[in-house]
Amino acid sequence: MAASGNLGSFRLPPLPTIRELIKLFRLQAAKQLSQNFLLDLRLTDKIVRKAGNLTNAYVYEVGPGPGGITRSILNANVADLLVVEKDTRFIPGLQMLSDAAPGKLRIVHGDVLTFKIEKAFPESLKRHWEDDPPNIHIIGNLPFSVSTPLIIKWLENVSCRDGPFTYGRTQMTLTFQKEVAERLTATKGSKQRSRLSIMAQYLCSVEHIFTIPGQAFVPKPEVDVGVVHFTPLIRPKIEQPFKLVEKVVQSAFQFRRKYCHHGLGMLFPAAQRLESTGRLLQLADVDPTLRPTQLSVLHFKNLCDIYRKMCDKDPQLFAYNFREELKQSRSKNQTKDSDKESCGL
């Protein structure tokens, strides 16, 4: 069922179905690229409806593939649709859509991970961060291999208010493996609570809006797919640089089944680990025997604020990486062992 009420001005003419296009252009989902096509236009219409009212909106679609969601976006009466597709096999089918919707669809052959969107839309669309979101939407059914690195990149853009967020609090409606969708929206104490939960929720209002069964895709993935909607918050729940928040959160979830003090200890060099971890937890008012999944965003705010003060006092601290320390100590041990062998010990 297509979206109602905003279809009066434009409707795509009759076109080959997505299934017919796949046959026509001999398209096959590339397993190594984790591609899965969504052929049911009722579902693509539903994704687009859930993105909000797109009448006269400017839309950036990532990973359009054979163009199922692209059709639903065009039928929602948008002003302008920009699609970025890395796989050249899909360009002819998208060009057919562009010809059917003159002046509505712009196709870029490129990689969403590196594409610069900052100048893609008119300056007049920009809104102050405190205002309502701009009339720009990001929509995409991405390959699973790209979706997590891309959302982390975009969350950093939200934090810095650059990339797609130079226009203001641009909204995103994206597909993920159901498990990833559940992590993005997981609440405190949930089994799915993870680094991704905190990174998304401290910057955005995040909603898992519906789940698409795997059998709706071709080829059928082994998992169901979650559709997630993001609206950047006017004020982030943690007001520290993204990289600092990411480091604290990653450390906390380093040992997700252990008490949180184990992971947070990795923020500090071995020589000062015990003392500094104790001080961090005490000043942040965090119980060291909580598991990482039991920590709220407020807990992480306090941890990040205190860690920032500790880094300001000791400028070397932020650069410390426990993995590097581990590598160095292993290589020292290996050198010692080989020295012993050469001495016949």
Rank of each mutant, 00 (worst) to 15 (best):
197 S>E: 11
199 M>Q: 05
200 A>H: 00
201 Q>Y: 12
207 E>P: 00
209 I>T: 07
210 F>V: 11
211 T>D: 15
212 I>Q: 13
213 P>K: 15
213 P>S: 15
216 A>D: 14
225 V>Q: 05
228 V>Y: 09
232 P>T: 10
241 P>I: 13
250 Q>E: 11
251 S>D: 11
252 A>N: 09
262 H>C: 01
262 H>K: 06
265 G>C: 00
267 L>R: 03
268 F>Y: 04
268 F>V: 00
268 F>M: 00
271 A>F: 00
273 R>K: 12
274 L>N: 11
276 S>Q: 10
277 T>N: 13
277 T>V: 15
278 G>Q: 09
279 R>L: 08
281 L>M: 10
291 R>P: 03
293 T>I: 11
294 Q>H: 11
296 S>P: 01
298 L>C: 04
299 H>D: 14
301 K>H: 08
301 K>R: 09
301 K>Q: 13
303 L>M: 03
304 C>K: 12
305 D>R: 06
306 I>Q: 13
309 K>W: 03
310 M>S: 08
312 D>S: 07
312 D>R: 07
314 D>I: 06
317 L>R: 14
321 N>A: 00
323 R>V: 07
329 S>W: 10
333 N>M: 11
334 Q>E: 04
335 T>D: 05
336 K>C: 03
336 K>E: 02
337 D>N: 05
338 S>F: 09
339 D>H: 03
